[in-house]
Write a protein that binds this DNA or RNA. Structure first.
Lengths: 115, 115
DNA sequence: CAAGCGTGCTTGCGATGTCAAGCACCCTCC
DNA sequence: GGAGGGTGCTTGACATCGCAAGCACGCTTG
């Protein structure tokens, strides 16, 4: 499904990694990664999804679900601050993804951040 | 692993079902069921494990784990407003971007709960 | 005994996951 | 301009998934 594709592409670009860098870090071949991001794999192994979820700081459950697998009852709760008022409850993995994404944002718009 | 074998055999016998009865109920062929119970399958699809977990009334997570797959969030815990501490001060524009990104993340993880 | 049905198991095969190797392309540097 | 290194992508090969079909052994019946 496309859901998986976009999650993987988003995660990798957010981390600023090349296919070969991901291969190096996870042991998943760049060839296969390309196919995953191109939507050419119907049922990728949960093991592979798990490794990528850790590298990309995307919740494992999201990848499982995006791949079309049933997820073992999901619903996580957390509290945050004022930002949380806007974001709502988040999981630890989501926190990390958000932190990364913020760094990603700021690295792009360098010089344009004031306080 | 053998863990999966015993769980499946135990579940089926506990329900007093034949391989063909299970095939009838789940759509999984009796041939393949036999291979599963004989430990001749390395990475069975989570979809199949899910169907069997429902029929046998075995928690889906147990089957995933027994099959050697990582199970999502092995323990339930509530990490809280560390998010704000982790992110530090943010601009309003960043807040919005983060909210959007979180929504994006979750749009793939759409609410499949009620269990 | 033969006929039948039910059981678990094996086998042959198409479809698919995954990888090593290689291709085409874009940069940079000498 | 060629050498060299990066990038994503494609291809060919092999292992595995998962099934339809069939096998071998029961067991009841007539």
């Amino acid at each position: 499904m496309d859901a998986l594709r976009s999650l993987l592409v988003e995660g990798r670009t957010r981390k600023g990694l090349s296919l070969r860098a991901v291969e190096q870090a996870t042991g998943v071949s760049n060839a296969y990664l390309s196919q995953l991001e191109g939507g050419k794999v119907r049922e990728p192994s949960p093991n592979i999804l798990h490794r990528l979820s850790e590298l990309y700081a995307i919740p494992y459950e999201s990848l499982l679900e995006a791949a079309g697998y049933p997820v073992p009852s999901g619903g996580r709760r957390s509290e945050s601050s004022r930002l949380a008022a806007r974001l709502g409850p988040t999981t630890a993995a989501e926190d990390e993804a958000l932190a990364d994404y913020l760094a990603f944002l700021r690295s792009k718009t360098r010089g344009r951040n004031t306080r």
